[in-house]
Design a binder for these strands. Structure first.
Lengths: 321, 321
DNA sequence: CCCATCGATACCTACGAGGTATCGCTCATG
DNA sequence: CATGAGCGATACCTCGTAGGTATCGATGGG
């Protein structure tokens, strides 16, 4: 039996079009996002619908909504586009490596696990045969995306917040969580807290982070987009936050940490795509294994990091060597 | 920050072209497979290379080989194309379901776990709200592919043979393995065997199954493409096989089963793509859970199955209801 | 040494992706 | 209830490019 060619009709271009429309629920805005005019977009979508034999969108002249099939195609289509993008990035990276400029891109959440990460990178750098590691700091939850679309080779994820299905992982650290509160607030007198003590605190409404679409959820709390900003807002007595224990080391003097006893334990893991059997990734994984059984304080050098939002301009990276 | 459109260049068409060439390592044959002429294929590939900024293939006028980058793109590209195809199939299936013709496609290895599967399907069919299940019998190892490219919603896989990374799974059965030998063969006098007793048995060389590319590996054993054929060859004293314990029930009288004590245990699992939170799949998963704690012999009806090779013509399905 | 094999190049054609103009429907507004 | 703004669909045109044919040039076998 001979292996045949893939027989499906869909082109990735059409899928990009559909995903744009499905996310915007508006042909005009989607067309703008795609840098094209609205009519060809309308045509492409209805052609796609005819070829799939499935209604994807319900349009009136006032609104666009997804059908069942459309919802499925949005989810599956995003995954497929991520995979396409990943193929492209990983190939480019492999070509660079073959051309003598090997490198790893590690994605981690901005403002998390600084200590741990620095130790890991130092230990890896000490490995003979280790290569340059570029660190990309991204918004909470963005790491997973970068790993899925190939912009990163490895990521530091936090269970149970990030979805690690489909990745190989190595546990790095499990820890409890603390509440970070303004110094002097009534709650700071407590030895420890429970989650329900922290919901609906009148004068400290939970902060609101932007979603992946850039919009903020509704609510009374302040809108935030960085941790420094959040800490400042806490110290000003405007909000509070619940975070893993290890972030204590990064707190300012004007905020107070109180353990939250019933918050879920947070496990920091290092994750990579399963078939990525590159030596470098394997080495890094092995390093992280070794790290857990190592004496605690190795000599530390400062670690330079590059920041990168989820936007498209390539993430600049600082050498780790 | 606004969610932007996917900015990559690669079209799935180009990727299909590359995968075809990379698998054939021959532009002419690849072009045939793609139903096109060779020159535009050559052009498309070199254009792809220029746009990726990466050499993918090393060509002489006598041979084509993959570079490092090409190897990466072959692996990643296959995954991406599977994802594209999956998006298409799952969308079509969702549309059918929305149109009142819901159905599940379950992939399983031909000639494996008949008992277990029949029980599972019966139990599920007894569930109120259960829907039609089409069973696709495929060549060993093909189930995984069907699940990844969306032609199946659920699959019966066998650890450690099949790769379940990226799937949600539910364990069904763990069992040892047996050697199936011609009746009367010297080895059948043994109470049990070890793996090394079975390698290099002069008169019973291991059978050779076709790989995914349709070619047979080299070796002394006979070429086989079905289990019936294999059993016949065993009964003729030409070969042997090692298989999970449960296949005993399907053996003919002229072959003998002997336990292999050091063969790895085989775990039969039911698997599905993780985000596929359709009610039907969830029900089936729950049914399989219940099954493990159930009394053994429920009344059984015969189960009709459709066969399907890995080739493209749509798998026909027989209703389960 | 010559021919078979195979990928690359040159050149042409035609399909379809994408643009502009405009229509037709729906709802908010006074 | 009339009007206009907003939005998707339709009509029509243009041009880029995917794909075909013919042929070249390199390489290795007989």
């Amino acid at each position: 039996m001979v292996l045949l060619a893939y027989p499906f009709l869909m082109e990735s271009r059409e899928l990009r079009y559909f995903v744009a429309v499905a996310e915007e629920l508006h042909f005009g805005r989607a067309a703008q996002r795609l840098n094209m005019a609205q009519p060809p977009l309308s045509r492409a979508i209805s052609l796609l619908e005819r070829r799939l034999g499935a209604e994807l969108l319900l349009r009136t002249s006032r609104s666009v909504t997804l059908t069942e099939a459309g919802t499925v195609l949005l989810r599956e289509g995003r995954a497929a586009l991520d995979a396409m993008e990943a193929a492209e990035h990983r190939t480019r990276r492999a070509a660079l490596a073959a051309a003598g400029r090997p490198g790893l891109v590690l994605a981690t959440k901005a403002g998390a696990s600084g200590e741990l990460l620095a130790k890991l990178l130092d230990a890896y750098a000490a490995d003979p045969g280790s290569i340059r590691v570029d660190v990309v700091l991204c918004a909470p939850g963005e790491q997973e995306r970068l790993l899925r679309n190939g912009r990163a080779d490895v990521a530091i994820l936090h269970q149970p917040f990030d979805d690690t299905t489909g990745f190989d992982t190595e546990e790095l650290l499990t820890e409890g969580q603390i509440a970070v509160l303004p110094a002097g607030h009534a709650l700071t007198t407590r030895e420890n807290l429970r989650l329900k003590d922290l919901t609906d605190v009148e004068d400290l409404p939970a902060p609101r982070w932007p979603g992946p679409d850039g919009t903020y959820p509704a609510g009374p709390g302040p809108e935030v987009h960085s941790h420094t900003q959040l800490l400042q807002l806490i110290s000003l007595g405007r909000t509070l936050m619940v975070a893993p224990d290890s972030c204590r080391s990064q707190l300012r003097d004007d905020v107070v940490a109180v353990p939250v006893t019933d918050a879920p334990e947070v496990t920091t893991v290092i994750a990579w795509p399963p078939q990525s059997r590159s030596r470098a990734v394997a080495d890094l994984g092995r390093t992280s294994l070794r790290l857990r059984s190592l004496p605690d304080q190795a000599p530390r050098r400062p670690v330079m990091m590059a920041t990168a939002g989820p936007a498209w301009p390539r993430a600049a990276g600082a050498p780790q060597g």
